[in-house]
Nucleic acid binder design. Structure first.
Length: 272
DNA sequence: AAGAAAGCCAACCGCTGTTGC
DNA sequence: TGCAACAGCGGTTGGCTTTCT
């Protein structure tokens, strides 16, 4: 079972990259871009597997990488995002420009974990160590906040989620500080986008009836369909009677603006 | 000064999700 | 609809460096 190996192992180098290999990879990507990793090694004259090239480029050679120590602010972002979404390193990396998932993962395992433990916080559950429930690994994390990891297309969100275990004195559990993650799930129709002006684009603007039901984002110059919210409140899990930031329109909730999911022009919800 | 232990991080591995045929 | 190819992700490993004894 399983698939064939991604490359012919007999003819590929492994281990540390040499300067020459780096140069070849950089030069090739400069000239041709970084698509099609499978064929890239051959085209670039590298005796490497495509995956290896991709990893090397993403984790080390990319020009926009920020190297060096993590700042206190970055630390906090990592901790809060990890609290919210768990080991979704690529998502966390997406919130830290210039940092890679691998870098953050390593940093978490070598520094942050230890730091949290020293502060008496369980790095898995983000609860005080003596209060952490000894359940099966991972269960505590799920119990902590959210029915499921809402990675990928799902907008991880819920500024008002309550710990199902009922730690109501944990005021930070919902807002996650200034990140203010809203871990309700919002599902939208397949993100239909209409440019606001038909003159600047071949695509026509939406019919008035549709436009009325959509949000116009002036910064993007697009109409985008609103999400259909199935937040915990609506599903009856919260019980505090307050709408989440998304179905509340984000207008009145003072704590909900910073991480409200926003439809981007690429049709993917992002945190704003 | 030397060996052991711990820390660190680049790279690998195996798996899953997505896409195209 | 099923399959294969591919990209990407997260966990793990291995080797180098630093610190400790």
């Amino acid at each position: 079972m399983g698939r064939s190996p991604c490359c012919e192992k007999a003819h590929t180098n492994k281990g540390a990259w040499t300067k020459e290999e780096d140069q070849r990879l950089i030069a090739h990507i400069k000239d041709h871009g970084d698509g099609c990793w499978r064929s890239l090694p051959k085209a670039a004259g590298l005796q490497r597997c495509g995956k290896s090239c991709r990893l090397r480029w993403i984790n080390y050679l990319r020009p926009d990488l920020k190297r060096g120590h993590f700042t206190e602010e970055e630390d906090n972002v990592i901790i809060r995002l990890h609290e919210a979404i768990g080991n979704k390193w690529s998502l966390i990396a997406g919130k830290l420009p210039g940092r890679t998932d691998n870098e953050i993962k390593n940093y978490w395992n070598t520094h942050v974990k230890r730091k949290l433990i020293a502060q008496g916080i369980d790095p898995l559950t983000h609860l005080p160590l003596n209060a952490a429930n000894p359940g099966p690994p991972g269960a505590a994390h799920r119990r902590r906040a959210f029915p499921a990891p809402l990675a990928g297309g799902g907008s991880a969100s819920c500024s008002r989620s309550r710990d199902a275990a009922g730690s109501s004195e944990d005021d930070d559990s919902g807002s996650l500080g200034n990140l203010d993650l809203d871990l309700n799930l919002s599902i939208s129709p397949p993100c239909v986008h209409y440019p606001a002006s038909s003159s600047s684009s071949p695509s026509p603007p939406p019919p008035a009836r549709i436009a009325a039901a959509m949000d116009y984002d002036p910064s993007l110059g697009y109409y985008a369909s609103s999400g259909v919210c199935v937040c915990l409140d609506r599903l009856g899990f919260q019980g505090n009677g307050e709408p989440c930031s998304f179905c509340n329109g984000g207008a009145s909730s003072s704590s909900s603006s910073s991480m409200r999911p926003v439809a981007s022009s690429s049709g993917v919800f992002r945190f704003a």
